[in-house]
Design a binder for these strands. Structure first.
Lengths: 206, 206
DNA sequence: GTATAATGCAAGTACATGCTTGCGCATGTG
DNA sequence: CACATGCGCAAGCATGTACTTGCATTATAC
């Protein structure tokens, strides 16, 4: 009784459950989240949850897939490569990588449940991977075009991603006077400044 | 079955349980880890676990405290500040920050359980914080001494820590041909290279 | 030798929770 | 109208698991 619920009219319940589930799962972990709590949070009866998704595990799967589907990755790097290194990098960060700061919760869940639910992690890994590869490609291309010095692109891209992914988690536990200072723009600025200073080649022709 | 039993009175059992608990907790989360599994992993009877620690929650508390106590932070930055920027930074990374790569599992647990067990997270946060502040101080001091250009030290230190903390987690999910390339030394090298290139001031007197 | 402390073992209690069943109530559509 | 669909409600089943109790066993201390 899975696929029979796609009446255009009542996607509302379906979606509300998924979103409630994502919140509960990310807050309490898979085991910690009870179907009762999810249903209550979604404002539906517990039975409705099972009628829609069959089991708690399937709910997790579908919720994760839903979240992953929300993400978009660059189809072409060309627009960013045509710019100056600083500008291109900044645009790229803003456009794609900042998603990591929004979805850090579910990526976190993926890490936490990696042992118990390897299948779930696979989807999240894909998301993580593709965006990482894009970044690495961006560096590779910039180097080919002479706008960036040679670097350890593998680790470099990981640095950037790790920073964007971890910062929101840290902010949660930080005293608020610190957390408030850590705006997205400041993050981006620092990343761009660091990497551009280290490896950027200014194209101001001498 | 006569070798390890009469070692040091009772410390052996106590420690074995703590270590088993840390493994189970980090692998499955607090809820996911059962006292039975912990006891079995430690090679003791489940009752023994309760006789030692009273409750599962207290076991978690004590285990986390134990892990935190294992960490050491720099008392003085002086030795590192006397060196060249690259050398000092490298030494600092090796000496203190690499601990994050070993303890990423439990830090991870802290993030994952942050909602359910805020008291636990507090200990871990302390650990995270103190080492972060040290790094930031290191940057501050290096700048005072004219070996480093001005930078957003707050974000910069966070970048470094995030990278060291996230990389081992990523390695777990990476295809092995990637994971194997990501050695600790390569990580350190890339971090030093990046930050030194960006902000380091070579003291080779012109 | 005997007391004491640490552990194993078997059994059981209480409770949370995933999941099911059976019912009735709306709403809209042919 | 008749019928289907989506949902709420009440109750319950089955299972895992934190935690307890009582007793037997071993090892070390004195």
């Amino acid at each position: 009784m899975n696929e029979t619920f796609h009446l255009a009219g009542e996607g509302s319940t379906h979606r509300r459950i998924i979103e409630a589930a994502l919140q509960e799962f990310t807050e309490r972990g898979y085991k910690g989240a009870s179907t009762r709590a999810i249903a209550e949070r979604a404002g539906v009866n517990e039975v409705t949850l099972f009628r829609h998704f069959g089991s708690k595990l399937d709910l997790l799967r579908i919720a994760v897939e839903y979240e992953v589907s929300q993400m978009h990755v660059p189809e072409s790097l060309e627009p960013y490569l045509e710019m100056d290194f600083r500008a291109g990098f900044t645009a790229f960060l803003r456009e794609f990588l900042m998603q990591l700061t929004c979805q850090s919760d579910i990526l976190m869940l993926g890490f936490a449940e990696s042992y118990s639910h390897p299948q779930i992690v696979y989807s999240l890994r894909q998301m993580f991977w593709r965006i990482r590869i894009s970044l690495q490609d961006f560096f590779n291309e910039m180097q080919k075009r002479g706008r960036m010095r040679k670097a350890d692109n593998h680790v470099l891209s990981q640095m950037v991603i790790a920073t964007l992914h971890t910062t929101p988690l840290i902010k949660k536990h930080a005293p608020s006077e610190w957390a408030d200072q850590l705006t997205d723009e400041r993050l981006i600025a620092a990343l761009v400044e660091t990497i551009a200073s280290a490896y950027g080649i200014s194209n101001s022709t001498p």
